[in-house]
Write a protein that binds this DNA or RNA. Structure first.
Lengths: 117, 117
DNA sequence: CAGGATCCGTGTTGATACTG
DNA sequence: CAGTATCAACACGGATCCTG
């Protein structure tokens, strides 16, 4: 609130806080998997299947964080056993725009970066 | 090459590797400071002055990483004492485009995220 | 002036086991 | 199925001292 807009040097700078979130190991991958999901909704186990290497704990933590931040919606079917569906919110989808721009840049230039070293 | 444990989700995931870099604590700030720099070149001590809170070690580490990746150029004046100038490369400047889009998103939506919790 | 070397606290990640 | 709980390992970041 009192932080100046665009002030990267403020500890509460929004850009840094955003990068703290999408920069964590599994967040960006989860967002992409959800964005690419065919029905829009993906269940927990299916998410884990599409994110090779993620542990249950980390997937759970990641999804909780994204849900708290309003980027992901969580819908529970109270069946036995329960089914939990995750999907991007409007906010999450809006993040996809700059994020996909970043992905394009990454895909175009990271190879050059690797060979350059 | 033998696959290492933990990161075999996709042998080529440039996006995550990019986020690993710009998601670290000081990288995005360094890029922005260099992008906004008036003469384009900034010396080590000046960079540290413009990045409140960064330690010598972290600034050094950050700049080495950026330099290895070809995002930052390092120019040394062999004087005594030496002067080292840092600047963005063309590649670094091209990253500024998607990165500034991300900054705009952050400034517009992070407040909503905070209030939403 | 620029940055390397070292030590260390802390947070994040991960493996494993357990539960409603 | 969809998590939670616990413990251990490790990388990150910070403080400090040292050097060409």
């Amino acid at each position: 609130m009192t932080a100046k807009r665009g002030d990267l040097f403020d500890p509460d700078c929004p850009t840094r806080r955003l990068l703290d979130r999408i920069g964590t190991k599994w967040t960006s991958m989860a967002v992409k998997v959800l964005a690419d999901a065919d029905p829009g909704e993906v269940r927990f186990a299916e998410l884990q299947r599409r994110m090779p290497g993620v542990s249950q704990k980390m997937l759970s933590t990641t999804l909780q964080s994204l849900t708290r931040d309003g980027l992901v919606a969580r819908r529970v079917e109270p069946t036995v056993p329960p089914k939990v569906h995750y999907s991007l919110t409007d906010l999450g989808r809006s993040l996809e725009v700059p994020l996909s721009a970043l992905r394009e840049w990454a895909e175009q230039h990271m190879a050059a970066i690797d060979t350059g070293r």
